[in-house]
Design a protein around this nucleic acid. Structure first.
Lengths: 234, 234
DNA sequence: AGAAAGTGGAGTAGGCACCTCCGTATTAGG
DNA sequence: CCTAATACGGAGGTGCCTACTCCACTTTCT
């Protein structure tokens, strides 16, 4: 066992390694700002590299994005577990939502993955890992009397979705506006509120809804096109 | 003043008139269900007619959609005015939101127009007509002590957006779910809630945000494509 | 220095939405 | 009933856009 390394078959040339890093960093920025609708071409240019280079390193944008997101998703899952360790159940719940949303609102690509815009299966996997902890977080808060009894875990899913919308609407100029509306929603979760006129979705219904909505998000492009009375415009 | 009609230059042939109605009806359904992303081709087929027919009657889908939406938007504006006549300010505010959202959640095309997905100008016009009445509705409620003092008219805009998201997420299978979350948000608007950590957007900021978000919504298509590890799939 | 590895970006492929065109069908009315 | 005027249908043209490939050229490694 000397200094030999058996792991890597071919050590990757110096410039190649550097470019790979550049691509990953560029991808992080581009996907965060513009969502997964950005192309590998975009990422390449943002990194100051040619398209060909991007395609040699990553088969397609999903491979690149998938790797990128994995780590961030891990962060969210673990912050749910962290939150369970907070003594005050209400504070734990709030801390989790804030942490999770801080990450999501700063990264449009991540939002798209979590909302299942591109691949329902990927989203489902993530939800599998989050449902348990979040559910517990909620029940703990309910048992302590901090949250109304008729709140459901799926409500937290919808609150999450609503905050993502606020982030999309507000854009980069007011990156923290969601906190205002989260505060509002959380006040609405406290005991003693108005009776709900509609039942929450069950978990399977929620999964179904998430798997089928698609629609939301997509398209930023250079949309020069006019609008209502535009397209033909002879 | 006999039975003579001076108005129409050419009375439109019987079948043509019938088809025109069929198209309008079909457009209403198709745009409501699939949004303005549906093509005139889609509308034509839904009406059981050929594409050519659709294009003879309407220059493009925007002309058709614009006419269609105009009436509905009128409904919303007038329900804001109606709401000002309700004695209890809180009830008036709630009544307006519910009426307005009932219409919006049932019509995806309308939602897109109101959220400015296609044409910021059209949206701006609508907002011009709504801002006054809504603002008054809110201030009245605040003066009566029913709504917290630090709520802002733009908050109602965001609440509206959030409910549209819920409608998109829930889909046709739970068309009324938004009522649950509206209840929650409204409880959060009552006096005595947690202090907001972020200021509301000013009206100009709100308009800016709405004009620039684009992104949201679009694309339903027959997306056969796989997802994360899919596209190439050789 | 020579071979191996990596690069850039014009160009190809393919999909999709919008719209046109014209042979055929329907209607109006003389 | 017959003809002219009007309307219909839908195959296919056009243009746009995105994903991805290919190869002459550059950089690195030994």
């Amino acid at each position: 066992m000397t200094t030999e390394q058996v792991a890597t078959p071919r050590p990757l040339r110096k410039d190649a390694a550097r470019n790979r890093e550049l691509l990953i960093e560029a991808a992080r920025e581009v996907f965060a700002r513009r969502g997964l609708e950005a192309s590998l071409d975009d990422v390449a240019h943002h990194a100051g590299l040619g398209v060909g280079t991007a395609y040699r390193h990553f088969a397609n944008k999903y491979e690149l994005a998938s790797a990128l997101m994995e780590r961030t998703i891990e962060t969210i899952v673990s912050s749910a577990q962290q939150a369970l360790l907070v003594d005050d159940p209400w504070e734990g719940l709030v801390a989790f939502l804030e942490a999770s949303l801080a990450v999501q609102t700063a990264d449009r690509g991540l939002r798209e993955v979590l909302m299942g815009v591109h691949d329902p299966q990927k989203m489902a996997q993530v939800h599998d890992r989050l449902f348990g902890p979040i559910s517990e977080l909620l029940h703990r808060a309910q048992q302590s009397g901090a949250v109304r009894e008729d709140a459901d875990t799926t409500d937290l899913g919808f609150i999450n979705g609503m905050m993502c919308t606020v982030a999309d609407m507000a854009g980069d100029s007011s990156p923290d506006l969601w906190r205002r509306y989260l505060t509002m929603c959380l006040d609405g979760l406290r005991p003693g509120g108005t009776a709900f006129p509609t039942a929450a979705l069950s978990e399977p219904e929620f999964r179904d809804a998430m798997a089928n909505h698609k629609h939301i998000l997509t398209r930023t492009t250079k949309d020069t096109s006019a609008g209502w009375d535009g397209p033909p415009a002879t």
